[in-house]
Amino acid sequence: MTQLALVIDLNVCVGCHACVTSCKEWNTSGSAGPLADMHPYGKDPTGAFFNRVQTFEVGEYPNTQTVHFPKSCLHCEDPPCVPVCPTGASYKRKSDGIVLVDYDKCIGCKYCSWACPYGAREVDPERRVMTKCTLCVDRIYDETKPESERKPACVMACPTSARLFGDIHDPDSIVSQAIRDNAGYALMPEWGTHPANHYLPRRRTPMHIHEDELTRSDNPLKVDGLLPKPAKSEPSLDDVMSW
């Protein structure tokens, strides 16, 4: 069994929204039709996005961390949004675990969006059907693309490589390794949805400064500190080394 997923490294994400715009760009140009983008320059712009980047502040000043938090459908292994759909428009693919919506079957009843605890589904206000992240299903299998580009658009766009893509059921994939090695976790585990997407936590980058890093053993100042003071013209260790 394959379960494709994204792993998002919160330690690396800089909140640039490149994944948001590249996602919209790719998915609005696809065969499924454009994603709504209403009054983009008006007073109250709105539209459908598959991916959003939010920002949280953790801690209290001055000890705060800014956490940028990209959020899209997590392609849950036990997706609560699928069984509630009355038409079968929402489904989870057996072959690769991607949760998809068949836009031609969806009646726009919004029930699946109520059943997703993560708010990952958005109704397209123009097409009036439910939309959500497809893991770029129309891209990752495209054999006209070089192997290295058969990844979701957001993964390709991320300038800091905060987004990894792969099969979390394959223990040797980069995503499984990243989850193992960096304590990857799932969102809202309390609902038993078993999200396939994982997040890598913020990590402290500790700095150890050793004594000898502050004071060079061949520091001319230290040499200079010798008493009686050597004369300026006398050679120091640096003069020997700096040839």
Binding site: V20, P45, Q54, T55, F56, V58, V67, L187, Y199
Partner: peptide, 17 residues
Amino acid sequence: TAIGIKHPNIVQKAVGF
């Protein structure tokens, strides 16, 4: 649990749009 960070003080600063 929503963002998976264990800290009592978390404030949302932006929803992303």
